[in-house]
Amino acid sequence: MATRIEISGLTAYYGKFKAVADVNLTIEPKSVTAFIGPSGCGKSTVLRTLNRMHEVLPGARVEGKVLLDGEDLYGPGVDPVNVRRNVGMVFQRPNPFPTMSIYENVIAGLKLNGVRKKSLLDERVEESLKGANLWDEVKDRLNRPGAGLSGGQQQRLCIARAIAVEPQVLLMDEPCSALDPISTLAIEDLIQKLRSSYTIVIVTHNMQQASRVSETTAFFSLEKTGDPGRLVEYSTTSQIFSNPKEKRTEDYISGRFG
């Protein structure tokens, strides 16, 4: 498992608006990469191009290439549904399915893709919830609604749901921004645990978080409102936070702007 991601010449549009321009970067397998930058710089947009979620919005389109183990996600004949089975995603706000129990939420991806075997489903629920550090808290109430959990538990439920389909890559779009510090810590511990099996890309506004969880960091920024966002610097996290090459990176991480 786990997969190398190579992004080359990636430009993403919302209708006529160019949101992010000419991004080139390579993400190593089984690593945690953080995307940081001010609001509107296109880091979430780039993240969403990695599992073809960008184009879900009306008028949104992508130019350039995203290679997943050498295969172009935007090549002819590629089915976005199959892409998303390999590249899971966790969103900013926890979004468990409100009509489903905890159990059903975890296996939603499997069940909606036609897996019926009860023993396999049971096994995968336990595995995924343990993987998401949630099993001990919910094992006695698997049939209760997923929406009844606390915010942090819901987010870990969403992570369990994402890893239950056994993706190669896990994308996280500001997964802790709606959570309190304790729940954030739980998610960060979880990321440490998941890094051995998945390629993880995380978008965050929290620079301490980026420095805590990631090995490599990409800094995105934009000149002024209305301009497309660009990749400013991409390097190891220690390099970015201790000795950045670019003036703008240094200004951002030292809190002088953004």
């Binding site: 998303r84 899971g88 979004n95 991806g109 909606l112």
Partner: peptide
């Protein structure tokens, strides 16, 4: 129905 639920489902590779 919030779009987040649709996106959550799409992101699981559901058609």
């Amino acid at each position: 129905v919030p779009d987040e639920l649709r996106e959550a489902s799409y992101a699981l590779g559901v058609a």
